[in-house]
Structure formats: structure tokens, C-alpha cells
Design a protein around this nucleic acid. Structure first.
Lengths: 222, 222
DNA sequence: ATAAAATTTTAGGATTGCCTAAATTTTTAC
DNA sequence: GTAAAAATTTAGGCAATCCTAAAATTTTAT
């Protein structure tokens, strides 16, 4: 059986490769908060299990089997996040930690019952796509808000789910998936973005705008 | 932190002592499906952690700290069983296995939200009492149906939740907590009991009647 | 009271996954 | 093209939990 730890490694490898970066021993170690030596050992083991293949100094890639497992865990996670929000009234900053633990232990039965309860949803509370049961995931081209030029009106696609405090702040100023906002101004040298949501204006630092992904539509703000 | 394994040992020790038997190394090993030698080691460790005290050849007793943890896990388990049944439509034979895995990972937050959703219930789908948050559990004097004399009318208190097939059969013939039934006849030498539920009669073997606990009320069936 | 039976413990190992420190290999910068 | 920096791997350990086989202890039956 594939251990919970291996599942976590697969998930991290999936997410790192999704973000385009090459998935090195180092990068994995940092994300998993373990030493590099531990990652070396685990990579070896996972390669033996045919879950990944590894080219030293280049990185690691998931095999089909590995990707399938990663996507199943991610499906669990995102279904759980949405379920906790919808069925138990969790706020969107609380769901991640709970889902992180539950994702490894729920049965297929529970996965299906939650999916049915939720009407087979396609995205989680943070806008991330939920993989289907058969391992298909909606691929989207999202752009960090940081990269958007001033004057554009954009629609939020997804926000990072890992920092509860950030999520509370985003919620407070009304930034959620599918919300529209305009970039009013952009200070130079990585300075803050001024955005407008409804009638309110806000100034957002890079730490924030890097973590807000928008649909790649270009529309004039007027 | 108390590991999942230790939590399982505590739960088993609690249940064994609840059932009156003395909680020996052997008894624990059998219930946990591990070797006796493993139990010896774990008992030693748990005694060091002050979760239990141990008198060789006599048995083990939970400390207050140990009992508190055991009851918390049992609370998780029973709330989960009821939640899965009520909120996700699980049948009563499916809830045990799912709860068995979830009980170790849900947060206090989730425990409370489920309890609130369920209206702070006092028993689970099999009639077992749900401990309160502060470690109080309803003590009841239940009798196995096996011990009931013919001619009595009794009310079901609780059934064992561990055998799904048995639960499906009980459900089929209408035996649930709080259902009333009469013992029509009792064959000698551990033979089957004839019971009447509503207008239906059924013959139940000892394997079954040992696992049906009834409230200790004596009423004539007429 | 003693031998047999039952129970419990000790001894010696295995596995999983983590760690630190040291060594090795590769890449990068002049 | 070499030296410094970065990345990776090896070596040696630790903790938790399990196992089997053998030894020790206690209980029970005569």
C-alpha cells in the first residue's frame, strides 16, 4: 500500500511540476519541510515503486501511476474543502488544514457521497479545479495579478489556499474566485497595485498579488 | 503527541474494561490483532506515559488521562458514525469502518460542528452513548438479549457495530435501537430465541442475541 | 506440592521515515 | 578551465511499531 507520506510526496511533486519549475531534490525538501537527505532516500524508494523517474541535477517526473495517485489525493483535498465549507459552514481560511489530514483517510465511498452532495463541482472554495474521478483535471492559463498592467479589468480565477491569514484579508476586501476587479495603478519596482472592487479601492503588495491568479482575459476597464 | 496507535490501544483498553473483563496483555493482543510481545512493549510505554497502570497477570487500568483520551476518540467515532448516516446518507452498516479512520484526524472544530449539526446527540446509530466533550459518558445497565426470559417484552438499547453483515440482517428484520420486541420462546442449551417484532416472528441464534443489548426493563408481553 | 498449562516477558530483528555531518558531483562564474 | 558555490548522495543514527522464538513466571489441576 502507498503510505500517507508517499502520497504527500506525490502531491508536492505534482504541484511543483504544475507550476513549471523543475522538481529537484532541493525543491521537494523545502516544500515538505524535511532535509534534503530524506528526500534523496524517498526519491529512490518512489522510483523503485515506479511512481516517479529521476534524473539527478535535473529533477523528477511523475509516472502515469504516480500522477494518478497525486490527482486522487488532490481530488479528495478539494472536494473536502468545498464540503467542509458547504456542509459544515467552515470559512474558506479554515478548510485547508482540515482537508490536509482527511484527504488521506476518506474512502472512495465518502468521496462519491460528498461529490454527489455538492453536485459534482468543478472547483474548490479557492477556485482550484477538482480533478475528476478518472484523473482528468481542467487545465487553465491563469496569470498572477502581479503581471497585469494597469487599466485592465480582470476576473479572479484562483487564490492560494495555504495562508489562512491572507485568505481572511482577501475575504474582507471581497476578493473571491469569479469576482471582477480593475487594476487602477501599478507602482514601479514591484510596488503595490491599486485595485478597485465595486466602489472600493485597495493597495495590494506583491506578497498578495503573486498569490491571486486571474483569467487571462484582457478587457479595458471601461 | 499521542500517536494514532496509542489512541487505538486506549480505545481497546477502555472497551475491554467497560465490558467487565480484566484487561490482560492477552486480551489486548487479541482485540488489536497484534502479537502478545508487541502488547507487552506498548503497555510498558503507555505506563511510562502515565496513561495506564499495569499489574502483571492481573491487568491494566486506565489513568484519568488515559480515560480522557479514550473517551475523546470514542466521541469522535460515534459522532462521525451518526454524522455520516445523517448528513451523507450512509447506512448503519457502513459507518463504522469510515469512522474508524476519521476519528484520529478530525479537529476539535470539526467535532463541534458535527455535534452542532446533529443537535448534540446522545447516542450513535447503533444506540451507543456519545461521550460529552468534557469526558462524561452515560452509563447504562444493558442486558444481552440472550439473557432474557421467554415471555418478556423488551426495548433494544444498543447493537454491536462491528459486523456489517449482522447489521444488515438486523436492519432487514427491523431491529434498531429503541425498537420493542417480545421474546416468544427460548430453545434450551443456547438454542435460538423466537422473537416477535410487530407482527413478524424471527428465530435468532446466540451469535446474534449476544450482540443485541436491551434496556433492563421487565414487562409482561401481555 | 508439583507438573502441566497458560500467560507474560525478553531477545533479537525488520521496516518506515526522519535527522546530521561529511563526502561527492555538478554547475556556474570568472 | 578552474575554483567556488550549489546540489545531491552516502554514512551512521534514532524512534515507533511490528514480528518470531525462546525464556521466565504464574496459575491450575491433580
Amino acid at each position: 500500500m502507498i503510505t500517507q507520506t508517499v502520497q504527500d510526496y506525490l502531491k508536492v511533486i505534482y504541484k511543483l511540476s504544475e507550476s513549471g519549475a523543475s522538481v529537484t531534490t532541493n525543491a521537494i525538501a523545502e516544500r515538505m519541510n524535511v532535509s534534503q537527505a530524506s528526500v534523496t532516500g524517498m526519491i529512490k524508494k518512489m522510483a523503485e515503486l515506479k511512481l516517479i523517474s529521476h534524473t539527478p541535477y535535473y529533477g523528477v517526473t511523475l509516472s502515469d501511476a504516480g500522477r494518478k495517485i497525486a490527482l486522487e489525493i488532490i481530488r479528495h483535498h478539494r472536494l473536502l474543502e468545498l464540503y467542509l465549507a458547504e456542509a459544515l459552514g467552515y470559512s474558506w481560511d479554515e478548510v485547508h488544514d482540515e482537508a490536509e489530514r482527511l484527504e488521506h483517510v476518506i474512502s472512495e465511498e465518502m468521496e462519491e457521497r460528498m461529490a454527489a452532495f455538492l453536485g459534482h463541482p468543478s472547483t474548490d472554495p479557492h477556485g482550484a479545479p477538482i480533478p475528476t474521478k478518472d484523473g482528468f483535471i481542467m487545465e487553465r492559463q491563469l496569470t498572477p495579478l502581479t503581471a497585469v498592467e494597469s487599466g485592465q479589468k480582470v476576473r479572479v480565477g484562483q487564490v492560494s489556499d495555504r495562508d489562512p491569514e491572507m485568505l481572511r484579508y482577501l475575504g474582507k476586501i471581497g476578493i473571491y474566485p469569479n469576482v471582477e476587479l480593475s487594476v487602477v495603478a501599478k507602482a514601479p519596482f514591484g510596488g503595490p497595485l491599486t485595485i478597485k472592487i465595486g466602489k472600493q479601492q485597495h493597495h495590494l503588495g506583491e506578497g498578495l498579488t503573486d498569490n491571486i491568479l486571474i483569467y487571462h482575459e484582457k478587457r479595458s476597464s471601461r
